[in-house]
Write a protein that binds this DNA or RNA. Structure first.
Length: 601
RNA sequence: GGGACCGUAGUUCAACUGGUUAGAGCACCGCCCUGUCACGGCGGAAGUUGCGGGUUCGAAUCCCGUCGGUCCCGCCA
């Protein structure tokens, strides 16, 4: 249909007749001559229409509107020196159109302007509903191409290392534990349901049992949970599994992969080894298992300094087994007012929303401190000195303290820390010197207590191997419950972008772990019998990792939401605004499945 | 399930502590314009202020409800 695309044109085409196709981006009708920017997937070219080239041609050109789809044939001219447009790559050329065909008309008043020149902040609701128009604006196409390029690097790298890409089922078995499943009814087995996979976890393990050795998949995963800017109901994991492999080997291998991606896509050389931090260190120093290490303000435990000063809230916190911790806001004395940290203030509110009862503060001034009387009256010079030393606080700093149950103190100070970092612009995401703070978190606990249900839950998932000496069988059960796992997460700038573990490859241990999270023998048999059985038939030691591809793309392109990385995303209500899915189905369809809707209309 | 913010022309926004006929840019329609490139000039059409109710002499504005959207908490092994 065409023999050129806009961006391919250069001075060697001057005088040549070319055929082009595309959309009308903008038009400038001077009455006697019409200028029109043609846009195709590659770029722009100015078209000129002259009355001398024919009345029909000119009349048709006058009718063209933005986004009309056209074919043009004409001669490439060099533009007059004074009318060269340096903003586009073909700015020194133009096409003198001799033949024009309208390939498709366009209706009046599109939902929003498409031309990037008219770009305005368009409501995301409209952008998603008319995704094809938003795509045509180009930015999203660029994002999809970046995504494609990342996958290209991944596929090439993994292929070189003899990984095999394998597709695992999308219609699979519902699992207890973990996220809610999306269910798919079976017509042939009436009353039974498939579940869409939350991840290919068990299948990839079984591929290892099958001797595949190195597996990967660009895997669609489904979780029926509430959405966030970085969470969609269907998302993509870069999923990997390896046999006869250690934690150390997996971490090193994947660090190389990540470095390769950053090098190929962003031309950034990440030379240093990614830092590592145990889960406990992360919790102690940052209050979270995905610390943002781009700024300091770490949490300090000051329980032994302030626990006995007679301030009731502090005393109670320590006596009931809790903590007193704090962060030091450098220069906070001037940058943060008392209004913000006292009840009703925004920072106070952040702490309270995270469950904290309150937020105490100490301002450091002239080697003295400024705080509420109940604290100050009970602090002697030695304690103040210890406190300043512990927090590295100096004149002009602001120390914010939380006291109470350790988990609550950690969570609230973590949120306050992040909030203040944002408010004080401690990270600059638009800077050319953007920081890429990768961090491995290791030694996760195997289990965490579910307070509401008073039972243990797997912190990662119940297939992670514990760091235990399995020869000491007598204390296995007790040791197991307090054991750490051979599990690791990769964190980037405070976001979890991947995680994995060495898996359990012995059936007995797997059964013990499933029992520990509260499953009965019958449930284990029914839900995971196939896995246990496979582990009895010569399962090799194995482990792997999965990365959140959408998040990685989001971070690389500098977007605020993974929706910017997905061609047709769903909104926060997990609905597709374009197709209006999910939607009703015909009664006959339900009847065939023996399913009845009982909701009152 | 909960909290916060938002909803005005096709679109992006405006409209003061409630005040008289809800404005502007772009897009659209008509006329003019031969070197523009965010072309320009003149004119025009375009609104159930998401929807329903309430307060008031008077509501885009205040209150209640509802629908839709975004962000967050819970949730997401």
């Amino acid at each position: 249909m065409r023999n050129k695309i806009c961006n391919d044109l250069n001075n060697s085409d001057i005088g040549q007749s070319v055929d082009l196709c595309g959309w009308v981006d903008r038009r400038r009708d001077h009455g006697g001559v019409i200028f029109l920017d043609l846009r195709d997937h590659s770029g722009f070219l100015q078209l000129t229409f002259n009355p001398e080239d024919g009345t029909d041609l000119f009349n048709t050109a006058e009718k063209l509107r933005n986004e009309t789809v056209i074919f043009v044939r004409g001669v490439i001219n060099k533009r007059p020196e004074e009318s060269i447009n340096n903003n586009i790559s073909t700015g020194s050329l133009e096409l003198n159109v001799k033949e024009l065909k309208i390939l498709n008309e366009v209706k009046n008043n599109l939902p929003f302007p498409v031309s990037i020149h008219d770009y305005e902040n368009t409501k995301e609701e409209l952008r998603i509903k008319y995704r094809y128009l938003d795509l045509r604006r180009g930015k999203l196409i660029q994002n999809l191409k970046t995504r494609h390029n990342i996958l290209k690097v991944v596929r090439q790298y993994l292929d070189q290392h003899e990984f095999t890409e394998v597709e695992t089922p999308l219609l699979t078995k519902s699992t207890p534990e973990g996220a809610r499943d999306f269910l798919v009814p079976s017509r042939i087995s009436k009353g039974d349901f498939f579940a869409l996979p939350q991840s290919p976890q068990l299948f990839k393990q079984l591929l290892m049992v099958g001797g595949l050795n190195n597996y990967y998949q660009i895997a669609k995963c489904f979780r029926d949970e509430d959405l966030r800017a970085d969470r969609q109901p269907e998302f993509t994991q870069l999923d990997m599994e390896m046999s006869f492999i250690t934690e150390e080997e997996i971490i090193n291998f994947n660090e190389q992969l990540i470095k390769k991606i950053w090098k190929e896509i962003l031309n950034i050389n990440l030379k240093e080894d990614f830092p590592r931090m145990t889960w406990q260190e992360a919790i102690d120093n940052y209050g979270t298992d995905r610390p943002d290490t781009r700024y300091e303000m770490t949490l300090k435990d000051v329980g032994n300094i302030l626990g006995n000063i007679g301030f009731n809230i502090f005393t109670k916190a320590i006596k009931s087994g809790g903590s007193i911790k704090c962060i030091n806001v450098k220069g906070g004395n001037t940058s943060i007012s008392n209004v913000r940290i006292k009840p009703g203030g925004d920072i106070f509110q952040v702490a309270q929303d995270a469950g904290a009862g309150g937020l105490a503060f100490i301002r450091v001034k002239d080697n003295d401190i400024d705080t509420i009387g109940a604290i100050k009256n009970n602090l002697d010079e030695s304690l103040i000195k210890q406190l300043l030393q512990k927090t590295n606080a100096e004149e002009g700093d602001l120390i914010l303290l939380g006291a109470g149950k350790t988990e609550i103190v950690n969570q609230s100070l973590d949120r306050v820390r992040q909030y203040i970092a944002k408010e004080l612009h401690l990270v600059d995401d638009v800077s050319a010197n953007k920081k890429w703070n990768f961090l491995w978190i290791t030694d996760f606990p195997m289990f965490a207590k579910n307070e509401e249900e008073n039972r243990l839950e797997a912190l990662h998932h119940p297939f992670c191997a514990p760091k235990l000496d399995l020869n000491k069988k007598e204390s296995l059960q007790n040791d197991l419950e307090i054991s750490t796992a051979k599990a690791y997460d990769l964190v980037l700038n405070g976001l979890e972008i991947g995680g994995g573990s060495i898996r359990i490859h012995q059936s007995e241990l797997q059964k013990k772990v499933l029992k520990t999270v509260g499953l009965s023998n019958e449930e284990i048999e029914e839900k995971f019998g196939f896995l246990i059985e496979a582990l009895e038939m010569g399962a090799p030691p194995h482990g792997g990792i999965a990365f959140g591809l959408d998040r990685i793309v989001m971070l690389i392109i500098g977007a605020d939401s993974i929706r910017e990385t997905i061609a047709f995303p769903k909104n926060q209500q997990a609905k597709c605004l374009m197709t209006k899915a999910p939607s009703n189905v015909a009664k006959s369809q339900l009847k065939e499945l023996d399913i009845e809707i009982t909701i009152d209309e």
